[in-house]
Amino acid sequence: MHLLIEAIGFGVASGAVLALGAVGFTLQFGISNVLNITYGSLMTLAAFLGAFLLGLGLNVWLVMALGGLLIGVASVALNRGLLSPLIRRGLQPFGLIIVTVSAGIVVQYMIVAVAGPSTVAYGNLSGATLHFLGWTLTTAQVVILVVALVLMVGLHILLTRTQLGRAMRATSSNRTLARSCGIATTRIGDIAWFLSGTFCGMAGIALAITVESFDFTLGSVVLIPIIAAAVLGGVGQPYGAMVGGLVVGIVSQVSAAYWSPSYENVVALAMLIVMLLVRPRGLFGANSSSRKLLA
């Protein structure tokens, strides 16, 4: 029982990072309708940028914020400079996914070209170990949990309480209708890509803080549980992604504790495959914005 409680604690901590990543992934998809596989490589980029900024002697939480901003900008540039023009030229969906995979590979190997293929570590930033509710978490994990929570609540307020959020939700559920109602969908798209990039960057750095070390494959490895979380919650649905992230995190950690740590990702993958085959619109995907996924 103690093992279970502890594993759930770890699951919540890693689930918070996954939820951050999944919310960014899903938010952008919901509004721009593009499945962005480059996302994983942008997370890696954030982790490496973080290592560079930490090397300059900046505070780790400042680095996390800065990383979020920079990846946000990169994400907008990816959309404006590459994906939007290609969509305008009538590229088919399969072509588009090949483009985002290719762009991801380019970013990933640019990192290798600059920083090399060896592993990188942020050093020990975890701080004191805290005990509560039977959980054993590091200070860093708790701070990340709080940051994730604050960001989620912030997003919730943005989406439900502001004019901008209403415009975003309108664009997500019906882009054409939103445009004809006078919503500047291109600008909404930019904001979505920026927010998505920000979540992506912060998740990347948060991940880098919690792991001992990482290399250029960080993003492509973590992309699977992120996609799993997003799909579980219904792609395009931020609230679903939050829950999905927690579920994937907890299930992975519990199975790692009881079964074998090497199966940690395998369980997330199995959940994902089952979801994709049985209920591709996700557990919470019932409204029209997620039904877009079905041809």
Binding site: L35, Q92, F94, L96, I97, V101, L294, A295
Partner: peptide, 8 residues
């Protein structure tokens, strides 16, 4: 399901 989803 959509092509890009299949690709994913």
């Amino acid at each position: 399901i959509r092509q890009d989803y299949q690709g994913m």
